[in-house]
């Protein structure tokens, strides 16, 4: 007896859709890399500038947009000034802009004084290199086309090393690139939020202290939401996640049961 793949697919859809409809939500116990990430933000002084690089594709926004939302909320709550930019991914120009704006409106933060959104700039690694020497040789204007020199940022930031923290939200190798070209080279402390797939890849860098904190996938975002005492997209998604994991665990057990049963029959 073998389960048809159509049955598996149908069950999977079911366990994902039902919890979303009924809005079940669990408490998620935070783990160490997330707590470190959280505390790193809490230890920043009011009014300090930090860089948030948005280097993910629309295709992974399921995991990373909840992180961006929670992080933005946290930064605004602590009166830290985030500078959002996107130097490494040409595929997106305005990702996250709308949701940042929405949170800012709710928390009464003003664009271009309480936060900045700079968008994409071509140049890849050479842009990173240039930012190390003169930030404004790369970014002259904000995303909506206003000159940066008219704003507060111009007085406080000259080069990338003037930022107190760099946070990369990424789905690919950009964290490694930023570690190499910004953290190692200019000494900007760094933390990262990545997709679950990439998370285990970055544990060696976490272990070595190169990364100060790490949010891994939807679970990481949900833990972060728990620490912030809010329940948004990530925690809701985690309930669907939970049931799907259980389904997969059961599938593995059934698969092995069938395998051993088949093997015994084969021997006879």
């Amino acid at each position: 007896m073998k389960i048809k793949k159509e049955v598996i697919y149908f069950l999977l859809l079911l366990v994902i859709i039902l919890p979303l409809i009924f809005g079940i939500s669990f408490k998620i116990k935070p783990t160490e890399p997330v707590i470190n990430f959280f505390q790193e933000i809490n230890s920043l002084k009011k009014g300090s500038f930090i860089v948030v690089t948005i280097s993910f594709d629309p295709s992974t926004k399921a995991e990373l947009l909840p992180m961006l939302d929670a992080l933005t909320y946290h930064l605004f709550k602590n009166d830290i000034i985030p500078v959002y930019m996107n130097p490494l991914n040409a595929n997106v120009t305005n990702l996250g802009y709308l949701s940042i704006k929405k949170i800012a409106r709710k928390m009464k933060k003003k664009e271009n004084s309480d936060y900045y959104y700079l968008g994409f700039v071509p140049g890849d690694k050479s842009a990173l290199q240039d930012m190390g020497e003169d930030f404004y040789s790369v970014y002259k204007k904000t995303f909506d086309g206003k000159d940066l020199e008219n704003f507060n940022i111009f007085k406080n930031i000259q080069k990338i090393s003037d930022f107190s923290l760099l946070i990369d939200l990424a789905d690919g190798n950009s964290t490694l690139d930023l570690l190499t070209y910004i953290n190692t080279k200019y000494g900007v402390p760094m933390a990262s939020g990545v997709t679950a797939v990439m998370a285990s890849e970055y544990y060696p860098y976490l272990n070595s202290g190169q990364l100060l904190g790490l949010l891994g996938g939807l679970r990481g975002a949900a833990e972060y939401e728990t620490l912030l005492d809010m329940s948004a997209k990530a925690r809701r998604g985690m309930s669907a996640q939970t049931f799907a994991h259980i389904l997969i665990f059961i599938l593995i057990i059934i698969g092995n049961y069938e395998y051993f049963k088949g093997k015994r029959h084969g021997n006879n």
């Binding site: 598996i8 697919y9 389904l247």
Partner: peptide
């Protein structure tokens, strides 16, 4: 979908 059938 693929990952669930691969797991099985």
């Amino acid at each position: 979908f693929y990952i669930s059938s691969a797991a099985y």
